[in-house]
Design a protein around this nucleic acid. Structure first.
Length: 330
DNA sequence: TAGGCCATCTGGTCCT
DNA sequence: AGGACCAGATGGCCTA
């Protein structure tokens, strides 16, 4: 606890150490101190803690103490103490830099949280889970691109949840409107699906019957839908034969495709509406929102018959929606 | 209360 | 010398 303000250093530049000297460089507070000096006796009642707190300024003040001829004042035995204080000052500065650095790191991590499939302001992913999910997400998207066809949702989710804790798995599944109870993370971090397939719920428009939607995106997995038997040999399976997100990068045949704009591929189910559109260009439950260039005739992303996104699309603005819909009106 | 997560401090190492 | 980066230690907070 401070017992006195930072006035102790005055003694270093005033008698008996030397005569008066120019004070052009002192701050406003310093000037105030000069105008309203602290009684001398207070400096003698200073505690050790106070000395520590004052050390930084004291050291700086010593450095600028000069006599009228600009010669450094004699510091005598205080020099050793000053060196120690200098070290302490540097330590404080290093601590501040370290804090700042970690804040920057955390800011970047927060940015990462906002672009991985599951983001919630109220239920934040931990740092490690954010990194794991991001890695899995990149992996899953890479697999999708390399497979060149619509991803199998459950495989996709399994990939996303690989190595994640059960709570995070639940959160991801919840964000995708899947029944979290159906995804169980075992002790190896593998995610097993133990429920009914939800394929049709989230892929209402099959490639073979694009014009005959079988369900609506807002359907629930427990609803009375006609489910297509889940095929675990999804597009990722070949890559999981000895490979996984825990291993190396997926094998790509031929040149890598330019990254598609998957920003906002998943909805932010737990996010406040106000934040919903702010963090993603296009928020949706489960639907890639390719950019103009990415959406081709053979796109893996299926459209409803009226060329509108079938998956409960939430757009940040009408202009964005227009931008998305534009390619499909051509 | 134990365990997980986090922020912060701290000392060491490497680099400029 | 000083800054960036890293990892270990520590204590606080929260939750099951």
């Amino acid at each position: 606890m401070l017992t006195i303000p930072f006035e102790e250093h005055d003694m270093m530049c005033e008698p008996p150490f030397g005569a008066s000297f120019p004070r052009e460089n002192i701050g406003e507070q310093r000037k105030q101190d000069i105008l309203h000096p602290v009684p001398d006796d207070t400096s003698h009642s200073e505690t050790k803690d106070t000395e520590d707190e004052n050390s930084e300024r004291e050291e700086d003040e010593r450095d600028v103490c000069h006599d009228d001829n600009e010669h450094p004042k004699r510091r005598g035995p205080r020099k050793k103490t000053g060196r120690a204080e200098r070290v302490k000052v540097r330590r404080h500065e290093a601590n501040a830099r370290e804090r700042s650095r970690m804040h920057g790191l955390n800011d970047a991590l927060e940015g990462l949280r906002k672009v991985v499939p599951c983001y919630s302001k109220t239920q934040k992913l931990s740092k490690i889970e954010t990194l794991r999910l991001a890695k899995n997400y990149i992996w899953a998207l890479s697999e999708t691109l390399s497979a060149g066809k619509r991803p199998d949702l459950l495989s996709f989710v399994q990939t996303l949840c690989k190595g994640l804790s059960q709570p995070t798995t639940n959160l991801v599944a919840g964000c995708l409107q899947l029944n979290a109870r159906n995804f169980v993370t075992d002790h190896n971090g593998e995610v097993a699906f133990s429920g009914r397939p939800t394929y049709d719920v989230l892929y209402p428009y099959q490639s073979s019957d694009m014009g005959t939607p079988t369900s609506h995106s807002t359907g629930t997995i427990d609803g009375t839908k006609t489910f297509r038997p889940y095929n675990y040999q999804g597009p990722y399976e070949p890559f999981y034969e000895g490979a996984s997100p825990e291993g190396g990068s997926p094998h790509f045949e031929g040149p890598l495709s330019p990254a598609m704009n998957f920003n906002g591929i998943f909805s932010l189910k737990h996010e406040d509406p106000a934040e919903y559109g702010k963090n993603c260009h296009y928020g949706m439950r489960y639907c890639g929102v390719p950019t103009r260039g990415a959406l081709a005739q053979n796109s893996m992303y299926r459209m409803s018959p009226d060329n509108q996104f079938p998956y409960d699309l939430h757009l940040r603005s009408q202009s964005i929606q227009d931008e998305i819909n534009a390619p499909f009106h051509n």
